[in-house]
């Protein structure tokens, strides 16, 4: 549901971007990690997410396609790839390391650690990585070319961060995001504990 706020790297300098990420991802990663028997469960989940998106990014542009509906502002000849995925694998490694070290039974302590670690790792990774991802230097087959809809008018919006005047990243917004990440982590642990006890 929150994907429209985090789908494009151009949103990665907005406060809302980190709030949405902090609310959603810890819950999903940590619930799965707690219920899983893998050694690196959160990392595995993040790798699968990135892998699926990357496969789409690399495979879709191989297929020829023609825009069918006017107005056509970009003469695309092949399918457009999705945006480059979030580098979720970095915060996921942090999540796995903390969960390995702390084990079970100390969830009220673990949740804030996981939340803060997740947000800090995500913020540092995405803040700098997206600077590259929105630059013309990233327009190559690996990171995706011709990635905009044929009905979007070409413009400088492609190479700048959006809406940074109205929604900049501030210490307050990062604090809100950190609280959301801790709550999301706690809920994830709780849900994961429940899932781990399910009898099949």
């Amino acid at each position: 549901m929150g994907f429209e706020y985090i789908g494009f790297p151009n949103s990665a300098h907005n406060g809302l971007y980190y709030e949405v990420c902090a609310a959603i991802f810890p819950l999903l990663l940590i619930a799965g990690a707690r219920a899983s028997s893998l050694r690196w469960p959160a990392t595995t989940a993040a790798v699968v997410y990135m892998g699926v998106t990357l496969i789409m990014l690399w495979v879709l542009p191989v297929f020829p396609a023609t825009p069918k509906l006017a107005p056509v502002y970009r003469p695309l000849t092949h399918m457009a790839p999705p945006p480059f995925p979030l580098l979720l694998v970095v915060p996921a490694i942090g999540v796995d390391l903390w969960m390995q070290r702390m084990g079970t039974g100390r969830d009220w302590l673990l949740a804030p650690l996981l939340g803060v670690t997740f947000l800090a790792a995500l913020f540092v990774t995405q803040w700098f990585a997206t600077k590259f991802l929105i630059s013309p230097a990233s327009e190559n087959p690996f990171f995706g070319t011709n990635r905009w809809n044929y009905n979007s008018l070409p413009g400088d919006f492609e190479h700048r961060f959006w809406n940074i005047r109205n929604d900049p990243v501030t210490p307050l917004k990062l604090t809100v995001a950190a609280v959301l990440a801790m709550v999301s982590s706690r809920l994830g642990l709780w849900l994961g504990n429940g899932l781990a006890r399910v009898r099949r």
Binding site: P67, K68, L69, A70, P71, V72, Y73, P75
Partner: peptide, 15 residues
């Protein structure tokens, strides 16, 4: 039949 949007910035008409 082919609808063409008026804007001259359009790149090409669809088929």
């Amino acid at each position: 039949v082919l609808p063409v949007y008026w804007d001259p910035r359009t790149a090409a008409a669809p088929p």
